[in-house]
Amino acid sequence: MTPNYGKELSAGAVLLIIAALLPFASDGYMLSIGVSIAMYTVLATSWALFSGPTHYISLATAAFFGVGTYVTGAGIDLLPYWVLLPLAALVGGVLAAVVGLATLRLSGVYFVIFTLGLAEMIRQCVTWFQNQQGHKGTYVLTDLTEAHIYWQLVGLAALVYLIGWLIQHSRLGFALRIIGDDEQVAAHSGINTSLSKVALFIVSGAVAAVVGAIIAPRYVYIEPAIAFNPMLSFQVVIMALLGGTGRLWGPLVGVIPFTFLWEVISASFPNQTTLLLGLSFLIIVYLLPKGFVGLLQKIRAKTGGFA
């Protein structure tokens, strides 16, 4: 087993270096798509770290993302940029811990609804605070270019994969898989189920907050409606499910085709984007109920491969 670890890690490192070279090869167009892919890869992978093994569907991504955006928005004039990223991770992590402790006892649809409401609740809190303060527009003016933002996201992706890989090979990962299969069995085996779930939720929340903090300079002007856009939460879930959550690389194989599909639709049918996106969802769910990971496994099984 052990030699495989080195192989997995070095393969990951090579792919990472190739990904990091994109800004040198692109005229800006591929880079802007690359930023999308990198952003959704990080969000979907960190989402799947938590939701994959536990089967808890979280729609809180937009909440954490928005909080991170506002950490940069509020802090950019006060603190150096590089302090803001760990700060966003901290704020996102603490928020996830509070929310996790309060809600991870809830199961099924109750948890989904709560996380969906969370983004709206935080958005209202931010707005309320701004209203009290007599806020004057949040501008994030930096020298960071699209390439800088892309590299930060790729770096963060590497970190997320590393964390995911470490968790999978740790006692925590084992515990989570048992929880996912049967929570009661896990509890009876002496696993602290709520602590394990909260730990993973914190990772996922902190990562989404850092993504928001990295993206803020790209938007220049931050508004609550933009920072806490609920569409983001849904897109992350759809992309992760399209890829498949059973493998660490699953979300990535969902994000890439989804981003290109979205691009083709927006470029070719600017007046019917939402309609065609909805149709694609239906087709995807119908044809690929287990995502691309499931499809690959099916193909391997059929061809009598080594799956």
Binding site: D27, G28, Y29, L31, S32, I33, S36, I215, R218, Y219, I226, N229, M231, E263, S266, A267, P270, N271, T273, T274
Partner: peptide, 21 residues
């Protein structure tokens, strides 16, 4: 013409697409 869906990420992508593609 492109629809940006009132989403700044889409605006950025559409402007880049217009310029480079």
């Amino acid at each position: 013409e492109y629809d940006d869906q009132t989403n700044p990420a889409e605006t950025i992508k559409a402007v880049t697409r217009l310029a480079t593609q």
